[in-house]
């Protein structure tokens, strides 16, 4: 009785050690910036709820957690993941990069894909309307007719800009800003009535950053003709892409991605759908 159990335990131990021996497994070997380590870039600062407290090393926050899960699938344990900070501009500039992959809610688009490589999408985002209580009390409703009349803002370097034109087509030209903080400041100062963000960001800004912030409604991911899918960004032709895609698809299949979404991204069912 004991020996089969022992054998099984031994086999299990062996298989574990075998899988760690294959760490940085056959796929990723020699393809990373630094041998045996996966270097991941995030924003400076990295925003909640994607990365909690601007500390991706903690693995807390949706993108930080996904990063460690992907790295794990590829055979890098947590000690062999290193973080750097890089802007979008640094990612698209020609020349050597200081990261293997860059992960900061980059939307996959055909135009961008010509210049850089994207992994398989790890998240599909609904777009949401962030506004304030005053505007809602002033009569703004989650209907296109009502939204069109608002003064809009968005972060300039995101796909929210063309989506704003595509989904809402506002009557007056939108104002554009450098980052979330500036959009919030403009909303707070009453210079804009509403801003378009991905839903998790909008929920966070409404709850924490903007006084009396309200998420008025959402455009479900299926609604936009070109859904906003987030992918990890890599240099064009990076051989790692295959390994990363494999890891992400595996995480999708075994339900890990959905679990991480449930853990880190706020419940979004309460947000009305825009008609």
């Amino acid at each position: 009785m004991t020996s089969p159990l022992k054998l099984m335990a031994l086999a299990a131990a062996l298989s574990v050690s075998a899988s760690t021996a294959l760490a940085a497994g056959p796929c990723a070997t020699g393809k990373t910036l630094h041998d045996g380590t996966l270097t991941i870039a995030t924003g400076n600062p990295a925003y909640f709820p994607w990365v909690i407290d601007d500390a991706p090393e903690s693995g807390k926050g949706f993108e930080a957690a996904v990063a460690y899960a992907v790295a794990g699938k590829m055979g890098f344990d947590a000690d062999h993941v290193s973080w750097v900070r890089a802007s979008f501009d640094e990612s698209i500039q020609p020349g050597a990069k200081n990261f293997d992959v860059n992960m900061q809610q980059f939307s996959i688009t055909a135009d961008r894909d010509k210049v850089v490589d994207f992994s398989a999408p790890y998240y599909t985002s609904a777009m949401a309307v962030l506004t304030t209580k005053q505007i809602v009390e002033g009569g703004a409703k989650p209907t296109l007719d009502s939204l069109r009349k608002l003064k809009w803002g968005a972060q300039a370097s995101t796909t929210a800009v063309p989506m704003l034109v595509g989904l809402v087509n506002p009557d007056s030209d939108p104002m554009l800003y450098n980052d979330n903080a500036d959009v919030s400041a403009a909303l707070q100062a009453g210079q804009i009535d509403a801003a378009l963000f991905d839903l998790p960001t909008a929920l966070f800004l409404a709850a924490v950053t903007v006084n009396d912030g309200v998420v008025l409604g959402q455009f479900p991911a299926e609604r936009s003709t070109n859904p906003d899918q987030f992918g990890m960004l890599m240099e064009e032709g990076n051989p790692l892409k295959f390994c990363i895609d494999e890891a992400i698809n595996a995480l999708k299949q075994d339900g890990t991605l959905a679990k991480l979404e449930a853990t880190w991204l706020a419940e979004s069912t309460g947000v009305p759908v825009i008609k």
Binding site: F88, D89, I92, T109, D111, R112, K114, V115, V116, A156, S157, T158, T159, V161, P162, L176
Partner: peptide
Amino acid sequence: GVFKSLLA
């Protein structure tokens, strides 16, 4: 900047 970001 918007074009830069959209067209990479």
